[in-house]
Every structure is written in structure tokens, then in C-alpha cells.
């Protein structure tokens, strides 16, 4: 039997999933109670849950799909575990490649791991490479946030709100600018800035602005939690339509490679 598909690894993967869910439920239950104690309406908290589920579906399917991108080399169970806790595809791919190269497996992820020692080396490198935030957070988070809290509770609440919005916009801008002018992987088509990324971006922005306008003008407040995920799905749909309907010369146009 292929050791990468051993039932033991699936049991371990299930434990990882249960651990993550247990932790999320722990915080969810306490935050919910606190929200009610603060006087937040139950409907508002439910709407946060609903919109968060909707918001998460498409990126989660994308993450689930990336498990299979690593499955050829590593089997399904190890990528599943690593992408469920801390990991993301870029980290895990780089770590697996580095571990394999460290042990002399030169074909890297394009081949299949046949040695359990290489497999365990990959698991060690993926894990040790990604644990630092779990050491830093307990040491730094409270200090970092208490400094921010002090700034916000002062008289300049409007200024603090503006700065907070500016910080979020800075983060959003990093990804927006990558869709406009970032390069992708040289071997892969469609992951760099180009016609389709720009069209998707424009569709998402346009759809969101339109929905916000409808909410504002028509008073459709029920639409508010769905506006963001609906715009995201609309933009992804636009990417599919464009790729199917327009000539390849346009849809494969990537100006940064």
C-alpha cells in the first residue's frame, strides 16, 4: 500500500480538523455571549455568521483544490493537514520543495515521494517553518493592540477611524495592485496581471458599487450581508464567461508575465 495514503494519516488529518473546529467554536461561543451582553441584536450576529459563511465558500473551494495540486507528490492527507492549520499553498509548496532538495530529491514536487524519510522531512520543514507566529502572538499581541487601543480611545476618534480605514485600504491595495501590475508564475498562464485579472477586478468593484447603490436608494438593507460575497461570485463568473467567449489572444494577455 502507498504509505502516503495510509489510514493513519487520515486519522491524523481528522484530528487536525477537529482541533481547529474546537478552537473556533470555543471563541465563537464566547464572542457570541459577549455580543449579546453588549446589546448587539441576535439578528445582527446571525447575519455576521451567514455573510462570513458565504464569503468563505469560494476561497475555501480554491484552498481545497490546492490540496490536490500537492497530491501527486505527497498524497492527499499531508497537504490536507497542512492547509487546515496555519498553512497556505505558497508556504507548503516552497517548504516541500526545499525539504526534497535538501534530501537530494532533485525532481522536487513534479515527482512522487517514495521514501518515508523524505516524507517525514517534508512534514518537519513545513511545520517548523510555520510555527513562529504561535510563539510571537502570546508575547506581542496584547502590547501591540493596547497601544492601538490607547490611540483610539483619545479625542481624535474621527482621525483614528480614518487611519484604521487607511490601514485596511493599504492591505486591500496590495492585492489590487498585483491584479493590475503583478507578475505570476512564468510556467503558468492566467495567474499574472492581465486582461482577465483586470476584468475580474472591475466586475467586482462595479458590482459592489451597484449593490451599495441599490441598498442606499431602495432601502434594501437585507442585501447588505450578501453584497460582498455576491460581488465576488459575480466577478468570478465574469472571469469564466470572458475566458469562454473571448478570443484566447485577449484572455491570455498578461502584461507582466
Amino acid at each position: 500500500m502507498d504509505f502516503r495514503q495510509a489510514p493513519f494519516l487520515y486519522i491524523l488529518g481528522s484530528c487536525v480538523a477537529l482541533f481547529v473546529i474546537a478552537q473556533a467554536l470555543f471563541f465563537l461561543r464566547r464572542a457570541w455571549k459577549q455580543g449579546l451582553a453588549l446589546g448587539l441584536p441576535r439578528e445582527k450576529l446571525r447575519s455576521v455568521v451567514t455573510s462570513s459563511i458565504l464569503f468563505t465558500i469560494a476561497p475555501s473551494l480554491a484552498i481545497a483544490a490546492t490540496v490536490l495540486a500537492l497530491a501527486n507528490a505527497l498524497g492527499v492527507a499531508l497537504p490536507w493537514m497542512r492547509l487546515s492549520i496555519i498553512g497556505n499553498l505558497t508556504y507548503e509548496t516552497t517548504a516541500a520543495q526545499a525539504a526534497m532538495e535538501g534530501l537530494g530529491a532533485t525532481d522536487g514536487l513534479s515527482g512522487q515521494v517514495t521514501e518515508p524519510a523524505v516524507f517525514s522531512a517534508i512534514a518537519w520543514v513545513m511545520t517548523v517553518g510555520s510555527v513562529l507566529p504561535l510563539i510571537l502572538l502570546p508575547l506581542l499581541l496584547k502590547k501591540l493592540q493596547s497601544k492601538l487601543g490607547g490611540a483610539v480611545s483619545g479625542a481624535k476618534a474621527a482621525w483614528a477611524d480614518l487611519m484604521s480605514a487607511a490601514a485596511f485600504l493599504g492591505l486591500i491595495a496590495a492585492f489590487i495592485s498585483r491584479a493590475i501590475a503583478g507578475s505570476g508564475s512564468p510556467e503558468k498562464l492566467g495567474d499574472g496581471a492581465g486582461f482577465v485579472s483586470l476584468l475580474t477586478l472591475a466586475a467586482a468593484i462595479g458590482s459592489m458599487l451597484l449593490l451599495e447603490l441599490l441598498i442606499c436608494r431602495k432601502g434594501w438593507q437585507w442585501l447588505t450581508p450578501f453584497a460582498m460575497p455576491a460581488s465576488m461570485f459575480f466577478a468570478m463568473g465574469a472571469a469564466i464567461l470572458a475566458t469562454r467567449l473571448l478570443p484566447e489572444g485577449i484572455t491570455q494577455l498578461e502584461w507582466r508575465g
Binding site: 489590487i176 477586478l201 468593484i205 460575497p229 466577478a235 469564466i240
Partner: peptide, 25 residues
């Protein structure tokens, strides 16, 4: 047929977020 959508998850996601901010900011 749906692969192009998954390649564009980030522009779709952050475009929608930016749209939410553009009205006020």
C-alpha cells in the same frame, strides 16, 4: 471550465472589498 474563476479569486475578493470602501473613502 471553472478554472479561470479560481485563478481570479484574489482580484474578485479584494475588488469587492475595495468597492465597499470606495463610496465613503
Amino acid at each position: 471550465p471553472v478554472a479561470p474563476a479560481f485563478r481570479q479569486v484574489l482580484p474578485a475578493l479584494f475588488g469587492a472589498l475595495l468597492g465597499g470602501y470606495l463610496k465613503k473613502q
